[in-house]
Amino acid sequence: MCRNIKPLFNFEPVATEQEIAAASLQFVRKISGFTAPSKVNEAVFEQAVQDITLIAQRLMDTLVTNAEPRNREVEAQKSRERNAIRFGTKEV
């Protein structure tokens, strides 16, 4: 899976439309192999992003959990710590 696509479920505040659209765009880029499609593929590429965004939004709206919502800042700090270990850089 593409490392640029981050989990969006069970956060407080909930994922925004922009975050879901950005994840959808990354997904379509990953599976199509295009960062930016050619003119001939542009319409179908954009339609795929829109379709996946709608489906992802529906998924986010209907998933259920009993777990406590995660905090974005805490999760971001954990990610920075993992990256510091992984890449051997100073901890942020």
Rank of each mutant, 00 (worst) to 15 (best):
M1H: 09
C2Y: 10
R3K: 14
I5H: 04
K6T: 13
K6S: 12
L8S: 02
L8P: 00
N10Y: 01
N10L: 04
F11S: 08
F11M: 06
E12Q: 08
E12W: 03
E12R: 02
P13G: 11
P13D: 09
V14Q: 12
V14P: 01
A15W: 04
A15F: 05
A15H: 03
T16E: 11
E17M: 12
E17P: 05
Q18D: 14
Q18K: 14
E19R: 06
E19K: 00
I20D: 03
A22H: 00
A22R: 02
A22Y: 01
L25A: 09
Q26V: 01
F27H: 06
F27C: 05
V28K: 01
V28F: 03
V28T: 06
V28P: 00
R29M: 08
R29N: 02
I31Y: 15
S32V: 07
S32E: 06
S32I: 00
F34S: 11
T35A: 09
P37C: 01
P37E: 03
S38H: 08
K39M: 02
K39C: 04
V40I: 14
N41I: 02
E42K: 03
E42A: 07
A43R: 08
A43E: 09
A43F: 03
A43C: 04
A43G: 10
V44C: 13
V44F: 09
V44I: 15
F45C: 04
E46N: 14
Q47A: 08
A48D: 05
A48R: 00
V49M: 08
Q50R: 13
Q50K: 15
D51W: 13
D51Q: 15
I52M: 09
T53E: 01
T53Y: 02
L54H: 14
L54R: 15
I55K: 06
I55A: 04
A56Q: 04
A56N: 11
Q57D: 05
R58V: 03
R58S: 09
L59A: 14
L59W: 09
L59H: 12
L59I: 15
M60V: 07
M60T: 02
D61A: 15
D61W: 05
D61P: 00
T62F: 11
L63P: 00
L63E: 13
V64D: 09
V64P: 01
V64E: 13
T65K: 06
T65P: 01
T65G: 10
N66Q: 10
A67P: 04
A67C: 12
A67H: 11
E68A: 12
P69W: 02
P69G: 05
R70K: 15
N71F: 07
R72D: 10
E73D: 12
E73A: 11
V74N: 03
V74D: 12
V74W: 08
V74A: 11
A76R: 07
K78P: 01
K78F: 06
S79A: 14
S79N: 11
R80E: 13
R80C: 14
E81C: 07
R82L: 10
N83I: 06
R86C: 05
R86H: 10
R86Q: 07
G88L: 07
G88A: 09
G88K: 09
G88M: 02
T89H: 13
T89S: 15
T89R: 15
E91P: 04
E91I: 11
E91C: 13
V92M: 07
